[in-house]
Simulated scan of single mutants.
Amino acid sequence: MMEHSFILSLTQIPGIDPNLFSDDPASVATTIQLLLVLTVLSLAPSILIMMTSFIRIVIVLSFVRMGLATQTMPPNQVIIGIALFLTFFIMAPVFAQVNEQALTPFLDGELEQEEAFDLAVAPMKEFMANHTREKDLALFMGYAGLERPESLEDVPLTALVPAFAISELKTAFQIGFLIFIPFLVIDMIVSSVLMAMGMMMLPPIMISLPFKILLFVLVDGWYLVVQSLLLSFN
């Protein structure tokens, strides 16, 4: 019933024919374009995650929570929300360049769809290339049997995006390792003190948790973490 109503609503839109085997090529092309647009919109969250600074930010913030051992504090919604807003802040120059070079001229009818796409992809590729290790990019280029590119324009997105993703994962884990060190030292000190006092049955995490939170607050930990993330994208 719902499918029938959806098809009926499509037939009421001018220029949209839900029948892909129609005799009118123009209506079929319009329908295919609509399906492609809906597909892109459904993949928009994945595009935001894989082609921006979101990967590094959300992993580092998760490492901070794991180091503090505060379980679900801050909640996942807060971490993802902070990561999204930091992503928009860091990517603002890139998004502004995409809007100025591609989106606005395309909406004004000055560019064709393919030209607008190429101009929109260029700033994103430049951003990803600046934060992608050559070794990671060579892995995917070599697996695909592609020759060494002479310029950034010759690098396909199919190779650049996964290379950028694994480069961001490595960088995020390196930052996470540095974040864990002071928390690990506190846990070791508390465990040693409890063993020296003979309190074997008392979980060390119950004692170390308040000290880790106190230390994190005293050094203004969230400020330092966000500052490090921002500087890592310069």
Rank of each mutant, 00 (worst) to 15 (best):
F6K: 07
F6W: 14
I7W: 10
L8D: 11
T11S: 11
Q12K: 15
I13P: 06
P14S: 11
I16M: 07
A26H: 15
S27E: 05
S27L: 15
S27V: 13
A44G: 05
L48H: 08
L48P: 09
L48W: 01
M50E: 15
M51V: 02
L61D: 05
S62W: 09
R65T: 04
N76L: 11
V78M: 15
G81F: 01
F85D: 08
I90Y: 08
I90N: 14
M91K: 10
A92D: 15
P93Q: 10
F95D: 02
F95Q: 03
A96E: 12
V98D: 03
N99P: 03
A102G: 06
L103I: 08
P105K: 06
P105I: 07
P105C: 08
G109K: 12
G109A: 09
E115Y: 05
A116L: 00
F117E: 04
D118P: 01
L119I: 08
A122G: 06
P123D: 00
N130Q: 10
K135A: 13
D136R: 05
G142S: 12
A144V: 06
E150Q: 02
S151E: 06
D154E: 15
V155R: 11
P156C: 02
L157Q: 02
A163Y: 05
F164W: 04
S167T: 09
L169C: 04
F173G: 05
G176M: 02
F180H: 10
V193N: 10
V193C: 13
L194H: 11
A196E: 12
M197V: 10
G198W: 14
L202M: 06
M206F: 15
I207Q: 04
L215Q: 03
D220H: 13
L224P: 06
V226P: 01
Q227N: 15
S228D: 09
L229A: 01
L231M: 11
